[in-house]
Design a protein around this nucleic acid. Structure first.
Length: 91
DNA sequence: AGTTTGACTAACG
DNA sequence: TCGTTAGCCAAAC
């Protein structure tokens, strides 16, 4: 199931983002916490910065890197939060 | 085997 | 808009 989650995250196009809940749903896992936990263990090649909370914020220990990475991909934050409505990956 | 802990979310106040 | 509560799964103690 970890592979499933990783696959979903890896398939997020540059400039787009997903919430943990979205990733969980796409990956077919039961809880968004799983996604977070999985990524905390193994983010090796994943664009983990493209995954944020549903409200567009991120955990503090990641926030700086997160925003920096997203900024580099064109997902500019209007402050400490990301504009999910604009950048949410919808297919 | 039971408790604690997270890169979480949705619902309430 | 921000803090709290309850529900959630798997790993670490």
């Amino acid at each position: 199931m970890f592979e499933r989650v990783r696959d979903v995250v890896a398939s997020i196009p540059t400039g787009k983002v997903l919430s943990y809940g979205d990733v969980a749903k796409r990956a077919g896992v039961s809880s968004p916490r799983l996604v977070g936990r999985i990524m905390s263990e193994d983010t090796a090649d994943l664009p983990w910065h493209r995954v944020l909370r549903a409200n567009g914020t991120v955990a503090e220990h990641l926030r700086e890197r997160q925003l920096e990475a997203l900024r580099a991909e064109g997902v500019l934050a209007n402050g400490p939060k990301i504009d999910m409505r604009a950048h949410r990956w919808t297919t």
